[in-house]
Design a protein around this nucleic acid. Sequence first.
DNA 1: CATGAATGAGTGTTCATTCAT
DNA 2: GATGAATGAACACTCATTCAT
Lengths: 209, 209, 209, 209
Amino acid sequence: MNTRQSIIDAAISLFNSKGFTGTSVREIARKAKVNVAHISYYFNGKGGLLEYLVSEFYEGYIAAIEKNYSLLTAHSARERLQQMLLDILYYQHDNRQLARFVHREVTLDTILIREVMTTYLMKEKYYFTAILEEGMKRGEFRNASIPHIILQLRSLLHMPYLQSQYLSEVLYIQPHELFFVRQYYKEILNSLNSLLAKPLKVRKTILVR
Amino acid sequence: MNTRQSIIDAAISLFNSKGFTGTSVREIARKAKVNVAHISYYFNGKGGLLEYLVSEFYEGYIAAIEKNYSLLTAHSARERLQQMLLDILYYQHDNRQLARFVHREVTLDTILIREVMTTYLMKEKYYFTAILEEGMKRGEFRNASIPHIILQLRSLLHMPYLQSQYLSEVLYIQPHELFFVRQYYKEILNSLNSLLAKPLKVRKTILVR
Amino acid sequence: MNTRQSIIDAAISLFNSKGFTGTSVREIARKAKVNVAHISYYFNGKGGLLEYLVSEFYEGYIAAIEKNYSLLTAHSARERLQQMLLDILYYQHDNRQLARFVHREVTLDTILIREVMTTYLMKEKYYFTAILEEGMKRGEFRNASIPHIILQLRSLLHMPYLQSQYLSEVLYIQPHELFFVRQYYKEILNSLNSLLAKPLKVRKTILVR
Amino acid sequence: MNTRQSIIDAAISLFNSKGFTGTSVREIARKAKVNVAHISYYFNGKGGLLEYLVSEFYEGYIAAIEKNYSLLTAHSARERLQQMLLDILYYQHDNRQLARFVHREVTLDTILIREVMTTYLMKEKYYFTAILEEGMKRGEFRNASIPHIILQLRSLLHMPYLQSQYLSEVLYIQPHELFFVRQYYKEILNSLNSLLAKPLKVRKTILVR
DNA sequence: CATGAATGAGTGTTCATTCAT
DNA sequence: GATGAATGAACACTCATTCAT
């Protein structure tokens, strides 16, 4: 089997459950059934391995966003945003362990993380902002604070994957099942709606509970 | 200054920014201006220090929930739930660094974390479930999947504190300011509404955009 | 026995015979009968140990020079220079292993060595230059290229200690014996004479072989 | 370019500035733009490469001595010795980096170095001794301790090349320039003179300053 | 001849903890 | 209570060498 890929797989699995600093290169090598020296050989050290994995994750993550942002503008902003959210969910689902690890790691104060923020997370913000502004201009969305919307969307999108263990062991929700993705997507759409929908102008008196 | 407290403060600060495994006891001792041996002396080692901090955090966290759950049942479930959420926000605000660290740490697979889940997080779930069920029974809330509601509430409650660096450096939101808490609370109330509000029965024809 | 001093002694001995890069910290610790970690503990790592030893050597070396330079100027420049050379010989004799190691190490291109040059070796040059110029001004010495004199003096002073093994194993000279120092000092005085003595003005015809 | 020669050139350069143990085969291979395995292939490992270079150096070194020793005995011992010294200087000048490295390496206690001593350095001693004894027998030289003369000659001959960096960076003498060789040769001749010249028998009273 | 993957021993350093003072 | 020396295991990494291709 491919040495390089073995290392990647072992690293993702271990980083996922024990964290980056909590995992030793020897553990990775042992799990990958590979000589320790190969980690430095292929990835330029443990730090390089981290960098590779984080970049790898965000490349795919941003790609999922970018793809939908660039859809024919025939589609409405809402449609494109919704598809974007769905694709992010699927991407995370397909890379569950990596996602959990990266989302956790990104809460630390390290040089690497600062770099990640100024590249990938700024890009993510850019696309979200662009599509939200477009939708607002077109009258599809209600005017609202874009950063706050981004904050809430990210919370909803990332939490199930970051907290997967909590979900399964406390809430008895299985985020690994594809079924979860589809159901959760609907809930996100609802939240999106309440965040962005234009208020109905209703004659108050006619409202009935 | 108190040796024990110095250690606690230094540990919270360092764990917050570098993570538990990423911080050494010597760093903590240096920052606390205290002899290394004191950490073992007072907390029975690094692991004991972690355990203490996590417990400390959740004790206060659960207390904030419990207090509001036990309010005179004169108050509606909605009122009590809302106050609960507000108190959780304030509690996290008052313990920002600790909150970030604990919320991050709780995403790992360790024995300690499993224990935390079966005690504190189960308790949290219990109270949320109880008050939600009460509200549903009383007709205050729409019937919905309680675990999913808990998941979403927790996401919204914890994210700003877990992601505080992202908020300030990418979104330019300052979660440290008290102003943020109040504003964010309103947003959570909105989300809560859309999650739990009973649908308006409206005569369709009269709806006006 | 003192841990710190054990490390120093073991390091000098091993660096002397195997060189700095050729010696491992584990060897030093083994020889000093001390835990490996103590090397970092006391000297801030192998590099720090090297730095300490080199500085230590040159501090004493420069002190031997300085002492004689600052002698009452009642003494002639020649007398003070001669005493200086003798003291350098004695100093090296007393620190034979360290001297060999340092003189060897100083032929490498490292950052530490560059620093040593700009501090200690510049100082050495300064004192030699000062006393030589003084002697020339006073008419005690013949005018000659000071750098070349320094070069030759240093060669003569350091070589026996740098090449001690060659001396004993090839030339069968024992540089460790105090006897050697005294005899070698006379030879150096001769060389010094031929380097610095003012030419005798002799009536050629009276010279007799 | 020739692979073998590339390795040799890279090794000399690196050993010169970083020492043998301070240089890794990968560095050599990188600098030589050659695959690492070639070093083992051509020189039977790093140790073999060292052995080759040291031997190579001393072969040429001894050859320069031997050549002049074997000159027609028509020439005086002094003439032949002088030419010998000049040729050694030129040889070292032509192989500056190698010379510095070998002269440094020869101060270590290793098996290889012991072998070098019992072969090359013994040979060097033999020729020096032979020509000095010849000169003494013939009355060209004053009687004196031959080992001490060898010691001093070697000091003067090797020092500028061993200490080349000190010369250029502290004394501002450029030992690389051919001009230096010629000038330094004259100084060595002077030293040689004072070492070997028969004392002038002078009637003391007639000496004039 | 040339390559690059692979190896396992070795590198210097840091770790959390203990213990006599 | 407080200290700093001491420990041995673990850390990430580099080493020279080998070998199949």
